[in-house]
Amino acid sequence: MDFSWIHDPFYQSYFWQGFVNTLMLVAISGFFGFILAVLNALAQVKGPRPLAWLAKGYTTVIRGTPLLVQLFFFYDGIGRLLPMIDGIRQSIIWPLLTNAFFFGCLTFTVSVGAYAGEVIRGAMASVPKRELETAKAFGMSSWKILWRIWLPRAIQICLPTLTGEIILLLKSVPLVSTIAVVDLLRAANIVRSETFLVYEPLLLVAGIYVALTVVLTWVMHTIEKNFPGAKPQKSALFSRL
């Protein structure tokens, strides 16, 4: 085993950049993806027909195609078509549209919106009808029931599943190394190509991912435990890794 390259500041900066990009990708697409997921679920459960179909179609297409294909589709497809729009090169969002990291975030957001949206939709269906009916019996309007009872209860129910989704998201990040975003895998590949070491850089990547997964699981578990009305439960951290 040869880990002497770890002391090289040049490689260190690549790994650091990869680490930061990984966290940012997960945080940004986790956040916006969750919002999109809620909107997706709402559109399917409560939206007018055409909107519900649109949301259903979006979910089916995204869940039915490989994430890598979607990534290429957004980056190579849309990314190449956009410059044809008149005046777009002069607009202030142009730097964003030429940025591979942006397309990584976009692809993952769209993906989380579909997968988590399906999870939330299912959870909404599993909230006992009588809890909603009770709110109705007290004169609550249907929108208020949605925001105060239905949605919070659904999130409470599916939080453990959402934890699983976010960990899958974390482990999808290396895909962006194919569109020239520096993530941990790309940093490792740079080391591998220059030092001809096969395993050591990959071992470091694997080690970092395991650590990130443990931390992320712990964070989500803490949120679950402190979610209003959570049932008493024993520590399930290690049983769920």
Binding site: E131, T134, A135, A137, F138, I149, P152, G229
Partner: peptide, 12 residues
Amino acid sequence: SMVFQQFNLWPH
């Protein structure tokens, strides 16, 4: 106002 057989308190 109504009281139900299954209580139906809002768990959250």
